[in-house]
């Protein structure tokens, strides 16, 4: 428990996490409200209120990456490992604190976006009354938490802010979609890429009316299977990070 408190103190005793979280929140609420205001009445359904979740997730992942890479940048990681030689415990405590924070923020952002959409468009049917609709809103927090874990792991592996953030953002925003464009094999590879599954969990399986790219891709799992798959990939990278951090010199 002490280690969780330690990571909490570390995180909240500098300003950048506050700014990152505020930025993620504003980005998501702003995009969702904008969309809600301009969408055709028929197209505005519950899933559509979460439109900015993946972009805001990138900001959350930057915050999570920084939680590790700034420790390397300012060498406080050495002080951390000096105070607690059990390095796995240190990294796991940091992971838990950042993930819980990202998850809570995700729920606030998701329900906030939904609430704002209802305010902006009171005439649209935005009641959450199916399991799929609950998942489409409450699921955002789960994906943000897992995305934060991934970012902590990548940050611990690469140790440099620029490298880790670039890798995460370029991968999540570009690589997965570009892979799909490769002739013949592209779509088959894409079916197994993690952010495709994260997206499938939050957006997929609602009313088929949504159409679009996502449904064109036939995924091997249902939404919850996709979440488990995304979590599995994240876990593998976290284990890789734990092993690496224990093996190398601080």
């Amino acid at each position: 428990m002490n280690l969780l408190a330690v990571e909490r103190i570390k995180l909240f005793s500098t300003r950048s996490p506050w700014w990152s979280m505020l930025a993620a929140l504003v980005l998501m609420l702003g995009m969702s409200t904008l969309f809600a205001a301009v969408l055709e009445p028929g197209a505005l359904e519950v899933a559509a209120t979460q439109v900015g979740y993946d972009l805001a997730l990138m900001v959350v992942m930057v915050m999570a990456t920084l939680a590790v890479t700034t420790e390397y940048r300012f060498n406080t990681i050495k002080v951390s490992f000096q105070a607690t030689p059990r390095r796995s415990a240190v990294l796991l405590a940091k992971t838990v604190v950042v993930a819980v924070l990202a998850g809570l923020l995700g729920e606030i952002a998701a329900f906030g976006s939904w609430g704002l959409a209802r305010l902006v468009r009171p005439e649209a049917d935005l009641r959450i009354d199916t399991a799929a609709e609950w998942r489409q809103v409450a699921g955002v927090g789960l994906v943000w938490a897992l995305g934060a874990v991934l970012a902590v792991a990548v940050g611990a592996l690469l140790r440099q802010t620029a490298g880790a953030v670039t890798l995460l953002l370029v991968y999540a925003l570009l690589v997965e979609s570009l892979v799909g464009l490769i002739p013949k094999v592209g779509q088959n590879i894409r079916r197994w890429l993690p952010f495709t599954h994260a997206n499938h969990f939050v957006r997929g399986g609602g009313q088929p009316a949504e159409g679009g790219q996502e449904n064109a891709l036939s995924l091997p799992f249902g939404p919850w299977g996709s979440l488990a798959y995304f979590a599995g990939v994240v876990l593998v990278i976290l284990v890789l990070a734990l092993v690496t951090v224990n093996r190398r010199d601080a």
């Binding site: 002490n2 280690l3 408190a5 330690v6 103190i9 570390k10 005793s13 500098t14 300003r15 950048s16 700034t70 420790e71 300012f74 060498n75 406080t76 050495k78 002080v79 951390s80 105070a83 607690t84």
Partner: peptide, 21 residues
């Protein structure tokens, strides 16, 4: 120099103290 430049001296010592009970 092994301190976070944007963290106060007190906070730096506080997390260290907490880590060792």
């Amino acid at each position: 120099k092994w301190v976070h430049p944007n963290r106060s001296a007190r906070a730096h010592l506080r997390w260290l103290a907490r880590s060792n009970g």
